[in-house]
Design a protein around this nucleic acid. Structure first.
Lengths: 233, 233, 233, 233
DNA sequence: AATGAATGAGACTTCATTCAT
DNA sequence: CATGAATGAAGTCTCATTCAT
């Protein structure tokens, strides 16, 4: 499982001999994983300390040896898993190719991650309301990484000549689009399992990014009327 | 205020003399408006019946003369205000012009509405989690109207040749984008006041829709690389 | 239905022409009948004023034009129906015959009444707790009538020589027995319908009353120490 | 008091030093006893969690550390005290003697128990409506024990030749009789104190069981049609 | 460090009753 | 006399957090 600790096995006695710090970290991780599962299954609102500790197999009081507040743990959830998600997507987008191809790969990889860590969808969607601190942190991280990619693409001439500010806007649009699409097309209420995203979602996403929404009218084309501020108008 | 009742003034004594039915509707509206305000200010989670009735200036028990359940009122909130929003946007988009121009108008009008009804932003964002029934209804309404517009544009040749399914995807992407942008650029946590959306947001939105994200590479152009499935690759 | 009003039909215009007093009495009766049904169906605890008026088809406020208090109506329920029951049983016990035969007839008639007015069982059983005033009144009435019968039987020599005080005790025992038996053998939770009482119930009841519970031992018999008063008396 | 805990005194410091488990059991018992008192004093309907915890001297939330539901505690009440009652009666009925004597002893012991545990009367009478689960359990237990006694008496020839089914009926009659008598003769609404049951109650009970209700008429006598089964016997 | 009992605020909802129309 | 909206007290239960063991 991507987000769990991988303690060094440390030879034979690995299980019995743990330093105090290790035991400590292990309990903390148990709580974190329990929270991830509970939130994934029931949502933040139902993720009471009692349920989390029950899932983790520790006493309720133990919780407060590791987290000052229930909210504190909840706020750690998304950023932590979010980093995991970014790693996952990066690994899947190694190959070279045009920016457009890589963006498509990233888009697909996002949905693949949803399949691997089904809790993520719910955590992502609910964090905005229930773990705002964690949510903001996550958004900043992801938006930053995303913007870097787009700027680099722009430098290579593979991305249109947006200003830095506009790129930030685009990043948020794409994240929003992704979010909505994942909710619309990846949820499966019944058993939480996430199904593959349909082909026309990929194609619509690709087309919008590649060619824009609007057809070029008559030849003069570029007179995209929306950029009112531009040209003479 | 758009969503409040406008009782016929009925001559002079309008304020003191109300029929039973009118008083009834008035109380209902007081509760609805109070809920709108409270949710706008504190969010659904904090919108307890006690707070709503306090805001409305009626006893707690009165609430249940008008709504079977707290959730029932919460579920009415978004669809009701949502209709109001659609009306508002339509009014602002009367003018003729290309689809692209009208879409830009709609986009701007959306942010204008946010200024007029500042609660709407929060209600829209939280409803998905706290008033799922109302949310689904709203989404269906808006997505349906949106899709109709895009299909009509396609028929007129002003929108690219997306399939119906792809249009549905686009609609969700645009709604998602709008949602994220509104959160990013319209929120002002401190005093809830909503400021005008910056110009670069409008321009980025317009450009993406008009020309797509990616620059046409070398001549072969249309070989939108994202459609891997295609022959080309 | 035994307990409903039977207004004199009064010739032709019976339905349209009602004196004020009659309309008044009619509404009162509607409420009473509604209460009977609701209590029969849901029990006293669930018989809220709102449910009763709904069943009666009048407004909630109307209730308080006829009864000072919810409890007042509830307290009238059992005595009223109880009188009905006594009438019913008397009619079925007209025939002559020994006291024992007549008691058996009464016992059977009681269960027959339960079939005719299925609400009665629940009303009888719950009244003790929820309508104590009415319950006491009912008990007094029934016990009084019962005691009179037994004393008359005693005078005729058909009932053993119990003292008046003892007869009162017996009456309560028999009422209690009847109550328990009706709950045990007449209830049918599923559809509230009351089934015929099994034969062995009748026979056990008859045998106990006829011959007592205990077999006479060997000759000396009568030394049953429990009848302390006897011996010397 | 029969139903309270009797913690081992454990030497000197018994009162101050309690293990966790002991404190736990003690709190549970405090709640149980408080419920017993409150129900005895005010009845089930008024036995709110708030009143019970106040009586027990703990916070309202504490209640739910020990009982899943208010109803759960209420349902435990009668069976628990009922067992206590059976023990009490058994102890008082050790002596040998005829079945009739022993039944008289049991009858008296029942009323004695009412004196010792005055709450029992109300709990018994109300449980049928307010704690049906507990009531059924209690009834089954008591009726079972009772029926066993009567069948054994029958085998010894001390009880008349009732069928097993008839014995079950008798058991319910006797329990019902006992219940009604206890309400009629043992209640004292004013100060809840229970007085001794009057002698004529005992004698009437004894006589009915010993000799039946009806005097044997002249010789032909036995033709009491109610004893239908008899004839052929 | 771990435990788990105790706390008490607060949430939703029901209901008998009142009263202006 | 009928209506039905308004009232507010009371009830059950949940939960984050504290703290003695």
């Amino acid at each position: 499982m991507p987000t769990s600790v991988r303690l060094p096995t440390k030879g034979k006695l690995a299980r019995t001999k743990l330093t105090r710090a290790e035991r400590n970290e292990l309990t903390r991780q148990k709580l974190f994983d329990a929270a991830r599962k509970v939130v994934g299954r029931l949502g933040y609102a139902e993720a009471s300390v009692s349920r989390i500790t029950a899932e983790a197999g520790v006493a309720q009081g133990t919780f407060y040896n590791y987290f000052v507040t229930r909210q504190d743990l909840l706020d750690e959830l998304l950023p932590e898993i979010g980093k995991d998600m970014l790693r996952f997507i990066q690994e899947r987008t190694r190959g070279e190719g045009s920016e457009a191809v890589r963006e498509a790969d990233r888009f697909r990889a996002f949905f693949d991650y949803l399949k691997e860590v089904p809790e993520f969808l719910r955590i992502l969607n609910e964090a905005e309301l229930f773990a705002p601190a964690g949510y903001q942190q996550h958004i900043r991280t992801v938006a930053g990484a995303y913007a870097r990619l787009l700027r680099r693409g722009r430098e290579k001439g593979e991305v249109q000549a947006f200003s830095d500010e506009e790129i930030e806007v685009l990043v948020h649009m794409l994240m929003g689009a992704r979010g909505y699409l994942s909710q619309r097309y990846a949820y499966t209420d019944t058993d939480q399992s996430v199904t593959t995203v349909p082909d026309h979602v990929l194609s619509a996403y690709g087309k919008l990014l590649a060619g824009g929404l609007f057809a070029e009218q008559q030849g003069a084309a570029q007179a995209k009327p929306i950029r009112r501020k531009r040209g003479g108008r």
